[in-house]
Write a protein that binds this DNA or RNA. Structure first.
Length: 281
DNA sequence: CGAGTGCCCTGACAGC
DNA sequence: TGCTGTCAGGGCACTC
């Protein structure tokens, strides 16, 4: 689900999945004739991009917030939208970073626009994610059967870092961003500051469920929000309405009425209810 | 090696 | 009006 701030939409996992579904029918089977870096200096974020030329796109997959496009000559195109990345068949007015020329067919040019340059658009040997440590060490997909309470419990034992920080690392489960981490922890009644390996046993299952529910609900709301976003800026309100704690500092907790607290954790804004999410060991 | 910090990058916005 | 400072955050380099 997109989180709209001003004119920008922060891509969360559901939006990346939406992008994947849009790219699939467009790109699968097409051959990349040319891959160019535009308005961007050489950078690891666009590593080996030119290797994509001459290769056919075999699929459009997703892992967490990464898009993975296996190519015909043994490489893989890795795309991360970062904060402001947009993939489109139409040229952007500014901030164009990558241009892919495709073989014959509709919409023969793919433009990657990224205002804040947090995104990536690079080529690696297929499955070789050593240059992308987060992808390399990524946990199970939250909406797949591979994400289980038992496995989640095992993962949480491996770290003493605050549970929210650990969720953001993508290691215990893939695709949880700052907003969803706060919302899931609130739903489960777990303090974001609790060390991962001290989350009480009886809370692991609920937190596992909360992660799934928050992401599933956001996917459900995606269409509506996208429509609003396209029409005007109404998408902001409709999405924010669905959030219980994120962005609601000093407002009453929807569950107990106590004021929502805002703190900095891992250089991220963190919102929680001190009553519903007590810090206990 | 785990944990913590700060950088990247740009635009919106508040305050003076 | 126009300038300055602050905020936003996914991933990763760096330090301890």
């Amino acid at each position: 689900m997109p989180f709209t701030r001003g004119e920008f939409t922060i891509p969360e996992l559901p939006e990346v999945e939406t992008v994947r579904r849009e790219l699939e029918p467009w790109l699968v089977g097409r051959t990349i004739l040319q891959a160019e870096r535009v308005e961007a200096p050489p950078s690891p974020k666009y590593a080996s991009l030119e290797r994509a030329a001459g290769q056919r796109i075999g699929a459009v997959n997703r892992r967490g917030k990464f898009l993975l496009l296996p190519l015909s000559l043994g490489d893989e195109l890795v795309v991360h939208l970062g904060m402001t990345g947009v993939v489109s068949p139409d040229p952007p007015e500014a901030h164009l970073r990558v241009k892919l020329t495709l073989d014959h067919g509709p919409d023969p040019t793919l433009y990657f626009c990224d205002v804040r340059r947090f995104g990536r658009f690079l080529v690696v040997p297929a499955g070789d994610y050593r240059s992308l440590p987060t992808l390399h060490g990524m946990g199970p997909e939250p909406l797949c059967d591979t994400f289980t309470a038992a496995g989640f419990a095992q993962a949480l034992k491996r770290s003493g870092t605050p549970i929210k920080s650990y969720l953001l690392s993508q290691k215990p489960v893939a695709g949880v961003g700052n907003i969803y981490a706060d919302e899931a922890l609130w739903r489960a009644g777990v303090s974001p500051l609790t060390p991962a390996n001290r989350v009480s046993v009886c809370k692991v299952g609920p937190l596992c469920d909360a992660v799934r529910e928050v992401l599933a609900a956001s996917i459900e709301a995606q269409g509506t929000t996208l429509n609003d976003y396209r029409t005007v800026s109404g998408g902001v309100g409709s999405y924010l309405k669905g959030l219980n704690v994120y962005g609601h500092a000093d407002e009453p907790c929807p569950r107990c009425g106590r004021a929502i607290c805002k703190v900095r954790l891992s250089s991220r804004s963190t919102y929680f209810c001190p009553r519903c999410q007590p810090a206990r060991t």
